[in-house]
Design a protein around this nucleic acid. Structure first.
Lengths: 188, 188
DNA sequence: TTTATTACAGAACACCTTGTATGGTATTAT
DNA sequence: ATAATACCATACAAGGTGTTCTGTAATAAA
C-alpha cells in the first residue's frame, strides 16, 4: 500500500479515536475529523465511504490485533509479548498496556458501541475456549447461552475495571472473573 | 396535561419506537418521525428539544413502568398482574408479555443503546437484591463488581432469549440465569 | 532519469437535516 | 363567550454530507 495512503489512513484513525474519547459518536462530524487529521475532504471520502464505515474499519483493526495475539497467532509484537498463558488473563494484560486505545474507547461515552464490536469478535474465542474445556454433557444450560454469558461477563468485567481506573491488577480481575463464573483456577 | 399534548406525545413515541425497530437510531431523521407521527415540525420541537432527549424520555417511560412493577410499586396494571414473586422471574414475565416494546428494542439494531439505559436503571434493583440476600463477608469479590456482573448477566440473558425468538419459557431462562450465576433456587 | 500513475489539497457544489420563527386555526379550560 | 394554548403549514438560516472538479506532488515502473 502506498505510503501516502497509509499515512492518511493512520491520521484519520488517530483523529477519530481522539474525538471518540471526548464525545459521543453521533456528535462527531466529518469536518472535525478531517480538520484534526489535517486531510482534505475528498481524501477522507476516498478512504471511507461513510463515518459508520470508518468506525467499522477502526474496530476491526483494533480488535483483530488484540484477539490474534490472544490466540497465539503470530504477529508483529510477538517478540516482546510475555503475557501469560490463559486467554483471558492474556487479554487483560494487553488491555492494561493499552497498546491500542481499546480500553479508552470501551470506557468512553461510546462504550456500548465498542462493547458490541468487542463482543462480536470475542465470542468466537470464547466458543472455542468453552468447547476445549468442558464436555457437552456437563452443561446444565445450552452451549450458546453459556458462551453468550461468558462473553458478556468478560466485557462487563473489563468495563468495570476501567471504570475503577484499573486500580486492580490483571490477576485480581481475572480472579474476580473466574469467581463469579464459578470456575476453578489453573485451566487455560 | 392537555389531551392534545398527550396525544401528540404518544404519537411521537409510537412513531419513534416503530422506526427504532427498523433501523439504527443515527439514521432516523426528525422528518421521518414527524411524518410517521403525523405532527408538524414545530410541534415536535415544542415537545422535545432534540432527538437524543426524545430517546431519553422514551427509555424513562418504558423502564420506569416495568421496574416499578418489579419492585411492587403500585401502578396502573397491578390489577391484572399475576407475575411471580422473584424479581427476575417477574421481569421476564413482563418482558414476554411485551407490554411495552422493550424486548423489540432490546433486540433491534439499537440493542446496545437500550441495554445501556436498561442496565443503568436495573442496577439499582440488583443492588438492593444483592444486599438483601448475602452477608458482605460471604462475598469473594467486591460488591460493586458482583452487582455489575449480575446486572450484565441478566441483560445478556434477556438479549439471548429474544434472539432465540423467546422459544423458552420465562422459567427456563430464569433457571439458566440462576445456573450460570451459581445461585440456588428458591430465594426472591 | 524519465514517464505514467496515483493520492492529495482546495474549492465549489447540490442536497439534506436541523432547529427556529411566523401567522393563522382549532381545541381546551375558565 | 373568552382567553389561553396547542396545533399546522410554511418559510428560513445555519450547518453537515457526499460529489466533482482542477492543479500539484509523491510514488512506482521503465
Amino acid at each position: 500500500m502506498d505510503r501516502r495512503q497509509r499515512k492518511t489512513r493512520e491520521a484519520i484513525f488517530r483523529a477519530f479515536t481522539e474525538l471518540l474519547s471526548q464525545k459521543p459518536e453521533n456528535r462527531i462530524t466529518v469536518g472535525e475529523i478531517i480538520a484534526s487529521a489535517d486531510v482534505g475532504r475528498a481524501t477522507f471520502y476516498a478512504h471511507f465511504p461513510t463515518k459508520d464505515f470508518l468506525l467499522k474499519e477502526l474496530c476491526e483493526e483494533l480488535f483483530c490485533h488484540i484477539f490474534d495475539s490472544a490466540e497465539g497467532v503470530p504477529h508483529q509484537h510477538i517478540f516482546h509479548c510475555d503475557a501469560p498463558d490463559s486467554v483471558f488473563l492474556h487479554l487483560l494484560y494487553h488491555l492494561k498496556n493499552n497498546d491500542n486505545q481499546i480500553l479508552t474507547l470501551l470506557t468512553s461515552q461510546n462504550s456500548e458501541l465498542f462493547a458490541k464490536y468487542f463482543k462480536s469478535e470475542f465470542i468466537h474465542l470464547v466458543e472455542r475456549w468453552v468447547l476445549s474445556r468442558k464436555r457437552e454433557k456437563e452443561w446444565r444450560v445450552p452451549k450458546e447461552f453459556l458462551v453468550h454469558h461468558i462473553t458478556s461477563s468478560f466485557v462487563a468485567a473489563v468495563q468495570w475495571w476501567s471504570e475503577q481506573k484499573m486500580k486492580q491488577s490483571p490477576e485480581e480481575i481475572y480472579a474476580y472473573f473466574l469467581n463469579v463464573l464459578g470456575i476453578e483456577e489453573g485451566s487455560r
